[in-house]
Write a protein that binds this DNA or RNA. Structure first.
Lengths: 111, 111
DNA sequence: AATACATATCAACATATGTTGATATATTAT
DNA sequence: ATAATATATCAACATATGTTGATATGTATT
């Protein structure tokens, strides 16, 4: 069986990923890294304090890294692993959609 | 940019994974599938209503499947993709640990 | 039919979490 | 030094979520 600490870490990672605003931030960083906080605010249309708050969560969970540059702070995806996790989640969603679409009952009715 | 629906689906999947009890259930199902609700209760030491509740969440999110067998209900992991996602999360945790351990400052101090 | 067993569901409560507004900190420019 | 900009943090509120206890549903057994 798995260690309690690893389980806790798993929970934290998935919780960090289980928020719309944070996923949007990651999506922007996936398209272009690094980005400043204010740029992320513009792109997401969210308030600065909210974006900062979520960025600190993402950073605590090791999903993004930050580097100070003057009065700006540049955020980047921590590594490619995060993209893999998100892609697998997307694949899962698509697989489930396929299951639904392959339902025989629906298939027959829709003919 | 990603579609809103896909983003919502992502959030749901990660939220479903971001709970200790649900991850424990998945861990048990990873070791052995299928398992009945009562067996999962014994293994996890949780109440039946709680386990049922979380199983319905896991099922809604397509992470487990169920099959009725008399008065029992057998639950299984939906597919191998879920194991991959969990493994990637674990890898991420380990990667972060490695980052911490490779910190030069700490290295020098601990010599 | 009555009972026991397995599972699901509901209401209520406690807690965690996201959001907002205000404010603090730090850096650059005037 | 002062003002302006960028970011972080805090308290307070609203909402979502997990948990618990009670109950309902469905199946097998006697």
């Amino acid at each position: 069986m798995i260690y309690g600490d690893m389980l806790t870490a798993r929970v934290h990672i998935f919780r960090a990923l289980g928020d719309r605003v944070r996923l949007e931030i990651l999506e922007h960083l996936k398209e272009k890294s690094p980005l400043t906080v204010s740029t992320l605010c513009e792109l997401s249309g969210k308030e600065q304090n909210l974006v900062s708050h979520h960025l600190s969560c993402l950073k605590n969970c090791g999903l993004v890294s930050s580097k100070k540059d003057g009065k700006n702070v540049n955020y980047s995806l921590k590594n490619k692993n995060i993209i893999k996790i998100i892609n697998l989640a997307d694949k899962h969603v698509r697989d489930i959609l396929e299951n639904v679409l392959s339902c025989e009952v629906v298939k027959n009715n829709s003919k």
